[in-house]
Nucleic acid binder design. Structure first.
Lengths: 216, 216
DNA sequence: GTCTATACAGGGATAGAC
DNA sequence: GTCTATCCCTGTATAGAC
């Protein structure tokens, strides 16, 4: 019965077009014609274009987030003191395993995440906290344990700085890779970018408090 | 002769609407009706919506970038070895002086910059390099002098990571400030955010090379 | 040169027939 | 569930008035 539902046909087409052209430059008419379904089907099944974008991301998140949650719990229950690099490195494996979900799944997901956060501002943030707040809390706890000297508010700001780093990098990933290839003769795959990001993020989050950052 | 030209009326209205609603969610009809000019005036004077966005930013950049260029040159000619925090701190004064250009100029400009980089992807990047490449080169040189152990390609990546941090933070500035106010009872103005950013960025950029970041 | 009115193609969303 | 026809809004282009 290998029957592909209308929903899945739409999701597959949308994902492909979003990743290559971006959300704003992909029309529902392009999506529905590639998926060979009626234009109104998107609004019937998903409600709106914004909700379609969320659904595309959801397919990945439903695989990734439980995996991360499990890793976070495991790290929390092991009593040892984890350093920040270890905590951040937890993301690597689950992210790369998205390649099993779909061809180039990791790249697709991270680009969608980047585009989603910047294009439909505010929308995704709410969605994320609403559905995966518990998992995020575990992560924040791990970071706090790794940086016991930082006040909670400082961790809040720095984690959002880090989110910006990741999201922006992934959204501009294609352009950055092209420049890197041209200027430095480097061929960096998504995995390489992740490995470059971790020490940068770890150092930024753990940076000591200075007079200027305390004064405000 | 305190006569406001059509161009200026459009720029003022556009700036206000862009900063509060974003580029995508602000229509030309909103802008022209607030500016009390004809719809076609935007295309007549600026060519397109994208070019209007650039012009709004240009008003600030034409003040900011020469100021920065001058500061960079001065720091380069002083023979002393500058640390990264000193180099990054150069941005603070010129940025805050934008408040003299316009009411809430700093906040306006940084929000526009954030939105510009994320909303109209690729466009602003080209514009920036084309018009202010010389100034950017000076900045990169200063960073290289402050981090003599880092290869140029690593600096390239980390500066783009940092750009992401800044741009994302400024684009989501309003949301972040609201959360900070609600969760931590903190009232953080744009100046406070800048002072929080600098140690984070400095630590991230200067982070030592690890095995994982060298391997790719 | 500047401004106005208007036309046009393409976008997302939706009511109602089937 | 699905499809057609339609609605209103967007950015852009242009003809013609001043």
């Amino acid at each position: 019965m290998n029957k592909t539902t209308t929903q899945d046909k739409i999701l597959d087409a949308a994902e492909q077009l979003f990743a290559s052209t971006g959300f704003a430059d992909t029309s529902l008419r392009q999506i529905t014609s590639m998926a060979q379904v009626n234009l109104a089907a998107v609004n019937y099944h998903f409600g709106s274009k914004k909700e379609l974008i969320q659904s595309v991301l959801q397919r990945y998140l439903s695989v990734l987030m439980p995996r991360l949650d499990q890793e976070f719990s495991q790290l929390l229950s092991s009593q040892k003191q984890n350093d920040l690099t270890a905590v951040l490195s937890v993301f690597i494996k689950p992210l790369l395993e998205l390649n099993k979900v779909q061809h180039h799944g990791t790249r697709m997901f991270l680009q969608l995440l980047g585009r989603g956060y910047t294009d439909v501002q505010g929308h995704l943030r709410w969605f994320f906290n609403h559905h995966y707040g518990r998992t995020l809390d575990k992560f924040v706890l791990l970071v706090q344990q790794a940086c016991p000297d930082l006040p909670a508010s400082e961790i809040f700001w720095r984690l959002h700085f880090s989110l910006g780093t990741v999201v922006f990098t992934m959204a501009s990933n294609q352009a950055l890779q092209e420049i890197a290839a041209a200027d430095f003769n480097e061929n960096v795959e998504i995995e390489g970018v992740i490995h470059r990001l971790i020490p940068y993020l770890a150092a930024g989050i753990a940076s000591p408090l200075t007079l200027s950052s305390q004064a405000h």
